Amino acid sequence: MRLSLHDVSVRLGPVPIVADCDLTVDDGERVGLVGPNGSGKTSLLRTIYRAIDPFAGSIALAGDDVRTLSQREIARRAALVAQDNNPDFDFTVEEVVAMGRGPWLRAFEATSGRDGDTIGRALERVRLTDYRTRRLSTLSGGERQRVLVARALAQESPLLLLDEPTNHLDVHAGLELLELVRDLGRATLCVLHDLNLAATYCDRLYVLHRGRIVAGGPPAEVLSPELVRTVFGVTCTHLTHPTTGGLLLAFSPRHVAPVSALGRGR
């Protein structure tokens, strides 16, 4: 499943939110979308599943313009895990995950044995098989997020769209969730605010700043100290993670001088 955005612009009423954005996600690729608060990340994500219609440009899923696809067909191709996306009613875990089968069922059609198998595999994948009958309100934030990921898995869509999936999660729950997503091997577009998580779990990154994509490519190339200073307003130093060997970013306010300049050791 390939996702392609070309020259996409978004307006909310008369207000321009995003302008002239190009973005691609290839089959099996994990792509991150990062940027400061208010830069347009969620709005851009919402155009993919047509919660917002783009003011200009085109969006294609597997080569088909989303404007030519029904919501059911879009849902068969792309599954969303949105921020704070909890059902209004206190469903059981199994009931929530079963909602992912909706795009494949006819109106008023009940789930079948095959649907039950798919739901069971999704629960097993997120390690919540024993939670089937638990109410969503009884779960921790990390467990609820895993339920929503399981619902997306039950949807059997080849593309996952994740909008800040680690928001409000503690360190352990956030890392566990991103490890799970990485192990799925599906094409993924993930909005993240934590640059170190983005650098660790994404193959490529796009940086959105003031409604425009200003950089795209491998994390170590994109998250240069110069770009981080310009876009995020902080000083950034590239380090090597002592365990993984990957990129680790150390931040400080722009006005703080390096330790060496302060007379280290005095």
Rank of each mutant, 00 (worst) to 15 (best):
Met1Ser: 13
Met1Gln: 06
Arg2Gly: 02
Arg2Met: 11
Arg2Lys: 11
Leu5Ser: 14
Val8Tyr: 03
Arg11Trp: 07
Pro14Thr: 13
Val15Thr: 14
Val18Gly: 12
Ala19Thr: 13
Asp20Gln: 11
Leu23Ala: 13
Thr24Lys: 12
Thr24Arg: 15
Thr24Ser: 15
Val31Phe: 12
Val31Met: 11
Leu33Met: 12
Val34Tyr: 05
Ser39Lys: 04
Ser39Arg: 03
Gly40Cys: 07
Leu44Asn: 09
Ala51Leu: 15
Ile52Phe: 07
Asp53Trp: 09
Phe55Ser: 15
Ala56His: 02
Gly57Ile: 06
Asp65Gly: 14
Val66Phe: 02
Arg67Ile: 01
Leu69Cys: 11
Gln71Thr: 03
Arg77Val: 07
Ala82Thr: 03
Phe89Tyr: 10
Phe89Asn: 12
Thr92Val: 01
Val97Lys: 06
Arg101Thr: 01
Gly102Phe: 13
Gly102Trp: 09
Pro103Gln: 05
Trp104Met: 10
Arg106Lys: 13
Ser112Val: 00
Ser112Thr: 11
Ser112Arg: 00
Arg114Gln: 06
Gly120Glu: 12
Thr129Ile: 03
Thr129Gly: 13
Asp130Cys: 00
Asp130Ile: 00
Arg132Trp: 00
Thr133Tyr: 01
Thr133Met: 12
Thr133Gln: 14
Arg134Gln: 09
Arg135Lys: 13
Leu136Ile: 15
Ser137Gln: 06
Gly142His: 03
Glu143Ala: 01
Arg146Ala: 11
Gln155His: 10
Pro158Ala: 10
Leu160Tyr: 04
Leu162Arg: 07
Pro165Val: 07
Leu169Ile: 07
Leu169Asn: 06
His172Asp: 06
Leu175Val: 08
Glu176Asn: 05
Ala187Thr: 05
Thr188Ser: 11
Thr188Gly: 10
Leu189Val: 11
Cys190Thr: 15
Leu192Thr: 06
Asn196Trp: 12
Ala198Phe: 08
Ala199Ser: 15
Thr200Lys: 15
Asp203Thr: 02
Leu205Gly: 06
Leu205His: 05
Leu208Phe: 05
Ile213Ser: 04
Ala215Asp: 02
Gly216Cys: 00
Leu227Cys: 11
Thr237Asp: 14
His238Asn: 08
Leu239Glu: 10
Thr240His: 07
Thr240Cys: 09
Leu247Trp: 07
Leu248Asp: 04
Leu249Val: 09
Val256Met: 14
